[in-house]
Design a protein around this nucleic acid. Structure first.
Lengths: 239, 239
DNA sequence: CGCGTATCTTGACGAGTGTCAAGATTTCTC
DNA sequence: GAGAAATCTTGACACTCGTCAAGATACGCG
């Protein structure tokens, strides 16, 4: 009956007498945040359905059907459908905002970074198209639904930072600095990425190859000092 | 009862014996395409509601309530809710795809074109934000709903062409040619425009000014021959 | 074991949806 | 002006939705 419904305010009852809380023996078992594990499991399940049907058509019953739970359990872990959705997309963002960290860390030259970046962009469209279209769906919905805007704004900022890290590293490798502000760069890439996603979902041949080439053509323009940026570099090394 | 429901196949009964069809006397009254006028009036009404609520939340009853018709009349002019929506957005596109024709026609110099273009972009966000968010909503929905894709693809192409006309004129005024392919340019501008729209709807101060500046900064990069593109030009003449 | 709590299932309620058919109303034609 | 066709209104249908409450089940601690 209690209906706590997990409003952030962690009720202090859940913990043992506050001793052993960071104890050495069992770092895995936490009695109270099993809640959080369940929430995440439910979110993971919900994300599949959301990516398949979109925000509007994905009912709580359908979400529950594609999971191991029944449709009523949602209201045990979330107050609201909207709270579930926001939790889902926040959860997804956490895992994906570092997608290009490897690119940044491992790139050895400007051209190498461009190649790795393009590959990763194409890869994420192929492997996670449903998640990306869900994100665009939610961002569009936030233009109508006030209560989505805070989460969407935060995620957009995270993505902008993610792109900025790539471009900054690219500029550093080229021995110069970015010539365009981060918000603009993010907007540009987001736009061409969205077009590529649309083309891919439409089954347009070459949509992915186009994206790779477009990014490769765009990156050099983002740098200050158009000093013949490493043309005639050995640009193989990555298929 | 007949339930024609306006599937393009214009049933030949509606016309008089095919005489006088292009008659001189009454060029205004066309007996059969009053249908089309009604459809357009209904669409115009529906667009208001759709821009306010979005695709998913705008019910046919709500659409009809905000119009002079009753909710049943929709099925007299359209087979389907989806057919209405597609008709609406196609109708809207027709009127808006030439928004920048004036800019193209009247610009007297590269910088003048950039200024006019930026002003027009800002203006359309202020005056037609609901229509733009509706468009982004529909494009996102098309990633889930197969039956929307054809219309969305066509409209996207029209918008790409529209942007291409602006950039081509800009390059011509600068005495050079575009250095970036039209799809990429469209993707870029669409991305930064979408970000500006989001910022504007979020009430972020400076979102519109940022857009103007971003576009002004981006345009010169689209040209081949970075030959100091008309710097120190008299760039007044437009506030 | 047995009780109390946490977790989950089931079934229902009311509101809202797209769709459609039957009838009222307007409009046009002879 | 009468009759027919086009146009519009009304009311209902089958269905889905989010929400919630009451009861079933699992679990942990004494």
């Amino acid at each position: 009956m209690v209906r706590m419904a997990s409003t952030g305010a962690r009720e202090g009852v859940s913990f043992p007498p506050m001793t052993q809380v960071a104890a050495p023996k069992s770092p895995r078992r936490t009695p109270a945040d099993k809640h959080d594990e369940r929430r995440k499991a439910l979110a993971e399940s919900a994300l599949r359905t959301l990516g398949e049907l979109g925000y509007a058509r994905a009912s709580l019953r359908e979400i529950a059907n594609n999971s191991e739970f029944s449709h009523g359990v949602v209201h045990y872990y979330f107050n609201d459908k909207l709270e579930l959705i926001v939790f889902c997309v926040r959860y997804y963002k956490e895992t994906c905002v570092h997608r290009y960290d490897g690119v940044v860390a491992e790139a050895t030259s400007p051209d190498d970074l461009v190649a790795r970046f393009g590959d990763k962009l194409v890869e994420t469209i192929v492997e996670e198209a449903p998640m990306h279209r869900l994100w665009y769906d939610l961002r569009s919905q936030s233009m109508f639904e006030e209560s989505l805007r805070e989460a969407v704004t935060q995620i957009d900022q995270s993505l902008e930072d993610m792109i900025a890290r790539v471009v900054n590293r690219y500029a550093a490798l080229a021995g110069t600095e970015p010539a365009i502000a981060a918000p603009v760069v993010y907007g540009m890439f987001d736009g061409v990425f969205q077009q590529a996603l649309l083309g891919y979902l439409n089954g347009r041949d070459g949509a992915l190859e186009d994206l790779r080439n477009q990014v490769a053509g765009l990156m050099p323009m983002l740098l200050a000092q158009p000093a013949e940026t490493t043309i005639s570099h050995e640009q193989g090394e990555l298929a």
